[in-house]
Amino acid sequence: MSDTKRPDKGAVDQKNNKDQKNGRIVIFSSVIVIVLIAAIAFMIFSNQHGNEAKPKKKEPTHRTEKVTRIDYEGQPFIGSSNAPVKVVEFSDYRCPYCKEFEENVVPELDKEYVKTGKISLYFINDTILGPGSVLAANASEEVYHQNPKAFWAFHKAVFDAQKNEKEQWVTEKLLTSIAQKTVPSIDIKAFQNALDTKSRQSEVDKDNDLAESLGVPGTPVIFVGDQMIDGGQDYKVLKKAIDKALSEKK
């Protein structure tokens, strides 16, 4: 009969405590791993969800990029409709700088570019200086509607009559007098009715909307083709821009 040695109680307890400790370490480590995996999975999901919610902005292309262009239809102009370059002045009849442009720059443009068939020069309203500007614009639109050829004589006379910007010098009486002097064939009753009812306001609004869509910051502002010219009120600057546009047409 073999003699079996009885295990020491202290050693057994020590082993059990060690096993329990190792078990707790394994469980704790497993929990940490699970938490880390869950955190990583959440981050991946959130990133994917965010990308879906905020798609990348498309790069502009010739098909997707919106370009605002000038609508010349129905606008008064001087020069040939077949001129290779179109020049546009956005202007206000009460603006003193617009008056300077009309007096100092337009005659030079007319001489060098309009009469030689190189450009056509358009005028478009941009009524930024209040009710007087709107009234004058309505008057000019009515004159253009009745007699397009007489428009420019009326147009020039209104600028000639301009007074200090702080004065409310634009009146129906003044505009009627100018119309009678510059447009002998005008139907004066229809003209006065247009001023009373602002029957040409839709044309004025169209001009103002166009100016806003193009980002016109004030008056006068000059475009050569569809390009706004910085400092275009200066003849030398404008001449350079026109010559460049003409060279590109060759």
Rank of each mutant, 00 (worst) to 15 (best):
S2C: 09
T4W: 13
T4N: 14
T4A: 14
K5Y: 15
P7L: 07
G10Y: 06
A11R: 15
V12M: 15
D13K: 11
N16P: 02
K18E: 15
Q20V: 10
Q20F: 09
G23R: 13
I27T: 10
V31G: 02
V35E: 06
I37M: 13
A41W: 09
A41Q: 07
F42N: 05
F42D: 03
F45Y: 12
F45K: 06
F45T: 12
H49C: 03
E52A: 06
E52R: 09
A53H: 08
K58Q: 14
T61Y: 06
H62D: 14
H62P: 02
E65Y: 05
I70W: 10
Y72E: 08
Y72P: 07
Q75F: 12
F77Q: 06
I78C: 01
S80K: 08
A83P: 03
V87W: 02
V88T: 09
E89D: 09
S91V: 01
Y97K: 07
F101W: 10
E102H: 15
V105N: 04
V105T: 06
D110N: 11
K111P: 01
V114A: 05
T116A: 10
G117C: 07
I119K: 00
L121F: 12
D126H: 03
T127N: 04
P131A: 12
G132A: 08
S133R: 05
S133N: 06
V134T: 12
A137F: 00
A139H: 01
S140T: 08
N147F: 05
A150N: 10
K156Y: 04
V158W: 00
V158R: 00
A161L: 07
N164Y: 10
E167H: 13
K173N: 08
L174G: 03
A179D: 04
Q180H: 13
K181D: 06
T182F: 07
P184Q: 03
S185K: 03
S185R: 02
K189W: 11
K189E: 12
Q192E: 12
A194W: 10
A194Y: 10
A194T: 08
L195M: 07
T197C: 11
R200V: 03
N208T: 15
A211W: 00
E212R: 04
G215Y: 07
V216L: 09
P217A: 14
T219A: 06
P220N: 05
I222S: 05
V224Y: 00
Q227P: 02
M228S: 09
Y235T: 07
V237K: 13
K244Q: 11
L246N: 10
K249R: 14
K249H: 14
